[in-house]
Amino acid sequence: MPKLADKTLCTGCSACANVCPQQCITMIEDNEGFTYPQINSDLCVECHLCEKSCPVLNKKDIDIVMRNAYAAISSDNFVRNESSSGGIFSELALEILKSGGVIFGASYGKSGVVEHICVDNVESLWKLRGAKYSQSYLGDTFIEVKKHLLLGENVLFSGTPCQVAGLKAFLRRDFDNLFCIDFVCHGVPSPMVWREYVKHRSLKDNDGKLPTMINLRNKETGWSRYSYSVKFDYSDNKNYMCKNNSDLYMQLFVNDYILRKSCSNCQFKGYDRISDITLGDFWGIWDIDSSMDDNKGTSMVLTHSKKGEHLFNSILSRINCKPVTLEQASKMNPSLLYSSVHKEVRNQLLEEIRNNGFQGAQRYVQQERQVGSSMKGKLRKFIHKIIHK
């Protein structure tokens, strides 16, 4: 039987399931909400293509072609306002669509589930804008990407660094018409937790009716210095809006309570990447070049290949762009270089949410805070006692 990546390292990229000629590998969700490959031994012919297509088991050396870094802003105010940061993804995607190509990226599906879809027109591009803080379901996306590539169409694939690595490993050859964008990834949260959160918000805000629009990077409260908000829009003009640092789901995500196990030892960090372009928020741009920070969002752009640089250069007439150093780009973006190590209570918290829904997360976090507050109080008393002996 083929030996796949250990569960602590498997990213769930689905390359093994997509490449299997017997279709004997299924991505199964575990009790934490993450999917892992499961092999049907009765169908397996032991071709070992799954092993050969695993980006974790076959990590390749990266040929360093270039390392260019930029701060960039779209000149289209509407696109920029609807985007997580500076709107550069939309501008790059527009260039591919103008060539008759297609875009693959993460979108909200039914019940708010995050899944990769294919977009072939400008009118649907909005579905791919904005951050989705849940690991996306890829399904047979890699197979669909290959079909378009073989037809000679330009394809832009956007995903996490491990998803891009999975696609490249699945294809097992370079395509001149494939453009890959990854992003500065803090880690991928559990889809199970995300489903419970959407359900929790819907019950609390709208009598259980699901939102019509979700925006985890709403800029009505700003963008600079992390001032964005979480917003759920419902029918009948109802909505929920909360600053990101006060929203419980965002707290669990940013503080590493609900991430996939492999995120604690990510194999795809660093400046050198197999993607053509890396995008992210340019946190800290206010200290580097205040003229590039008007509180509406600024993108950090890294180009890694001639193909990526050429694509970026093709949109220069539609953006405001300034070169920066790699050190400036990464200074307040540690997730570009370092893994997010999960909290010790991660397993217990995920179990609490699985058993009791997102309400369980609220109780658990409150208990953790009470314990922490109690410990701090005892420490203060101990220090006071020592000082005043």
Rank of each mutant, 00 (worst) to 15 (best):
L216V: 08
L216P: 02
N218L: 07
K219N: 05
K219R: 08
E220R: 01
T221S: 15
G222M: 05
G222H: 08
G222Y: 04
G222K: 07
G222A: 10
S224L: 04
S224K: 07
Y226R: 12
S227K: 14
S227V: 06
S227H: 11
S229I: 05
S229P: 04
V230G: 00
V230E: 00
K231N: 14
K231A: 13
F232K: 14
F232W: 14
F232T: 14
F232E: 15
D233S: 09
D233W: 01
D233K: 01
Y234R: 06
S235I: 14
D236I: 08
D236N: 15
D236S: 14
D236Y: 13
N237Y: 13
N237A: 13
N237M: 10
N237V: 06
K238V: 12
N239F: 15
Y240I: 12
Y240Q: 12
C242V: 07
C242Y: 02
N244V: 03
N244I: 02
N244K: 07
N245H: 05
N245C: 03
N245E: 07
S246Y: 10
S246H: 10
L248Y: 03
Y249N: 08
Y249M: 05
Y249D: 05
Q251P: 02
Q251V: 00
Q251E: 01
L252C: 05
L252P: 02
F253V: 00
F253A: 00
V254W: 03
N255R: 11
N255M: 10
N255I: 06
N255H: 11
D256Q: 00
Y257V: 01
Y257D: 00
I258K: 07
I258M: 05
I258T: 07
I258L: 05
L259C: 14
L259H: 15
R260N: 01
K261I: 08
C263S: 09
N265G: 10
C266F: 10
C266D: 12
F268V: 15
F268G: 15
F268Q: 14
F268A: 15
K269W: 12
K269T: 13
G270S: 02
D272I: 02
I274F: 02
S275C: 03
S275H: 00
D276V: 05
D276A: 03
I277M: 04
T278C: 13
T278F: 09
L279D: 06
L279Y: 07
L279H: 09
G280L: 08
D281V: 01
F282Q: 02
F282P: 01
W283A: 09
W283G: 10
W283D: 13
I285N: 14
I288M: 13
D289G: 03
S290V: 07
S291W: 01
M292D: 08
M292V: 06
M292T: 09
D294C: 11
D294G: 11
N295V: 08
N295M: 09
K296R: 13
G297M: 11
G297L: 12
G297T: 13
T298F: 04
S299G: 04
S299Y: 05
M300I: 13
V301P: 04
V301S: 06
L302K: 09
L302T: 10
